[in-house]
Amino acid sequence: MIDRPPLRIESGPDIDWIVLDRPDASNAFSAALLDAFSVALDRLAGEGAPVIGIRGEGKGFSAGVDLSEYGGADSPSEDVARLRRNLDRWQAMWRHPKPVIVAIHGFCLGIAAQLPCFADMVIVADDARIGEPGLPIGGGYIAPAWVSQVGAKRAKELAFLPGNHVDGRTAEAWGWANAAVPADQLIACVEALAARMAKIPPPVLAMKKMSINRAMEAGGFLAAVNSVAESDAILHFEPAVLELREALARDGLRETLARFRGESSTEIFRRFKGDPADG
């Protein structure tokens, strides 16, 4: 039996879609999927449509890192190198000559919520769930990438509650997403944007992207996100985190996650402000 590729490319006249294609595993980022993602970006730099889209197959965009492959590293330096490799993958979108649009539906959790921070535009389904991992086993790997887009206080709000999340409408209101649209209109919306972008000559698009990115870099965006590998690796060897990893191996994911479940920050705020649940 031939293994199913973890990713596919769907080509079009205005946009080529990179589709995360592990729906049975919630499109979790395995080593194979990460490698395939990098290969796809490299390939599309020199061929195909003028715009790149990224989306997930199945019920959601991605559940984040594939915990079935998460065994930790033998040393902090080895862990830092692994985490930096992942950041390099996302920064390939940042450096890519083409505009990259991420389309998010269903769920977008953990490192999957870090990836869109390096894209050029993010369009979300209004009912999407975007947030932190359910297990607090890292030291601030994801939320720092949000700071330049949502501000430090909202990034801390996201990070300080285990498994915290926001819906698509909130992601738009915070400035993390360009727009939140009904889920059944998500792909059409992105393709309409790509069709308008495709009217601009590719070299002009590339220069527009580079000039705006340079403005963000001058504000410290890359310097901030390139430091998170070290802080995350340090926490991975903290005794409390090692105990949690032992509990995960002993008790399983479902039972370990149950220890940290609770209201999201937006649900807490709505409860105390007296807002309706769908407000």
Rank of each mutant, 00 (worst) to 15 (best):
I137P: 09
V150C: 07
T170I: 03
L109Q: 09
W174L: 15
G140P: 11
E132M: 10
Q149E: 09
L161E: 10
L161M: 02
R169V: 12
D167A: 14
P136K: 04
G139C: 06
I123W: 07
A180L: 13
F107L: 11
D167T: 09
A152C: 04
H96D: 13
L158E: 09
A173C: 05
F107M: 11
A92G: 00
G140C: 05
A177F: 03
E157W: 03
G163A: 06
D126T: 04
A112I: 02
I137C: 12
A179S: 14
A179V: 13
A113K: 05
E157T: 10
T170W: 03
D126S: 03
A103P: 07
A180P: 14
K98A: 10
A119G: 11
G140I: 00
V166A: 04
I111E: 15
G175M: 06
Q114D: 05
D126F: 02
P116D: 03
V122G: 01
A103N: 08
F118W: 08
D120H: 06
G168N: 06
F160K: 06
T170C: 03
A145I: 00
D127L: 01
A159K: 04
G151M: 08
G168T: 07
A173M: 11
W174D: 15
W174I: 08
F118S: 05
P116W: 02
V147Y: 02
E157C: 08
R95L: 08
K156L: 02
L109S: 02
A128M: 03
F118A: 05
C108P: 13
A125E: 07
P99G: 08
V100C: 15
P144I: 00
V166M: 11
P97I: 04
K98G: 07
R95T: 10
L109K: 11
A177S: 14
C117G: 12
F160D: 14
W174Q: 15
V102H: 13
Q114K: 09
P116F: 00
G110C: 12
N178I: 12
G138Y: 04
I123D: 06
R95E: 15
D120R: 10
I104C: 11
A180K: 15
G110L: 12
K153C: 00
